[in-house]
Every structure is written in structure tokens, then in C-alpha cells.
């Protein structure tokens, strides 16, 4: 089938089999290797993408399910001018990663959180990233980074 959807702000039409996993479609067919695959079972969150603004696991999503949807991967979270998303910037500034493999999924999970809850508590941040494993154990720095984003956005608002 030809699957048509919006990918990082642009319309794409791609010939693929309807049961191809979204993670394979994105990484292998469309060359967007920012989305990572780790467990392939929905346990680790590394492959998270935004589908209609909500975090979904691309390893448990099939190509046919993307038809007509709005998809954002880690490649699409920055501004049009290439400026980093505030969450990405805060991750770098807070040192919220070591190997970086979980980072795309973490950033997607945090963006989903901040869309629905712009000023989460530290515990709410913990819960929001509870589906994302970081085997380097950078969790505390990740929480710090998200708290920085929240602080900065409050400063901007005031």
C-alpha cells in the first residue's frame, strides 16, 4: 500500500507493506535514524514518536496505522531554523545523558508531558518518563533538565 501521512511538517507518501513496523519504516525506508529501537516489545520507550501529538511506541505501530496521521520524530522537534527544542537544549545543558540512546524517546515523552501539563512536579515528570529506560542511569539529570525547561518557560511567561 501507499501510506500517506504528515512527517515532521511535510507530507510523505511511501510505498510499503501495511504491516511494516513504523520504526522500520522511519529508520530504514525514510532514513530517519534518530528514532531508536531497543527492546522491540514496548518495554523501553526508546522508539517513542508523537502521533497526533501523543507519544506512541513505533515498534508497536504498523505502517497502516500512520495513514493520515501527524507524525513527529526527534528530527522534527526542533524549530524550522534548526534551533534546538527547549527540551533538547535543557538535556544538553544539564548533562541529562551519557550514551544518548534513550534521549530521543525521553525527549518525545517529555514533550508529550509538557503539552498536557506545562508545569509538572518532579514526581509527575518521573511518572511521565516511567516508560522510558535509561541504562546509563541519567534519570536525576533528566529530571533536572525538565525542571529547568519548566522554570525557563515560567520566566518567559512572567
Amino acid at each position: 500500500m501507499i501510506v500517506s501521512f504528515e512527517l515532521n511538517g511535510k507530507d510523505v507518501h511511501v510505498e510499503t507493506s501495511s504491516d511494516r513496523r513504523a520504526v522500520d519504516l522511519l529508520r530504514e525506508d525514510l532514513g530517519l535514524a534518530g528514532t531508536k529501537e531497543s527492546c522491540g516489545n514496548g518495554d523501553c520507550g526508546a522508539c517513542s514518536i508523537l502521533v497526533d501529538d501523543k507519544a506512541r511506541l513505533s515498534c508497536l505501530t504498523l505502517a497502516a496505522q500512520l495513514q493520515g496521521r501527524k507524525v513527529v520524530t526527534i528530527e522534527g522537534v526542533c524549530g524550522e531554523d534548526g534551533r534546538l527544542h527547549p527540551v533538547q537544549k535543557a538535556f544538553i545543558e544539564s548533562g541529562a545523558l551519557q550514551c544518548g540512546y534513550c534521549t530521543p524517546g525521553m525527549v518525545i515523552a517529555v514533550i508529550d508531558l509538557l503539552n498536557s501539563n506545562p508545569s509538572p512536579s518532579r514526581n509527575e515528570i518521573r511518572e511521565a518518563i516511567s516508560g522510558n529506560l535509561c541504562r546509563c542511569g541519567a534519570y536525576q539529570k533528566i529530571l533536572d533538565a525538565v525542571e529547568e525547561v519548566v522554570k525557563d518557560s515560567k520566566k518567559e511567561a512572567s
Binding site: 501523543k54 507519544a55 511506541l57 505501530t61 508529550d112 511518572e127 511521565a128 516511567s130 516508560g131 522510558n132
Partner: peptide, 9 residues
């Protein structure tokens, strides 16, 4: 139940 992305799906 599960995790946030599991609850989204």
C-alpha cells in the same frame, strides 16, 4: 497500567 505510551495506545 503499563506506562504513559502504553496507556496512550
Amino acid at each position: 497500567l503499563g506506562s504513559p505510551p502504553i496507556r496512550n495506545m
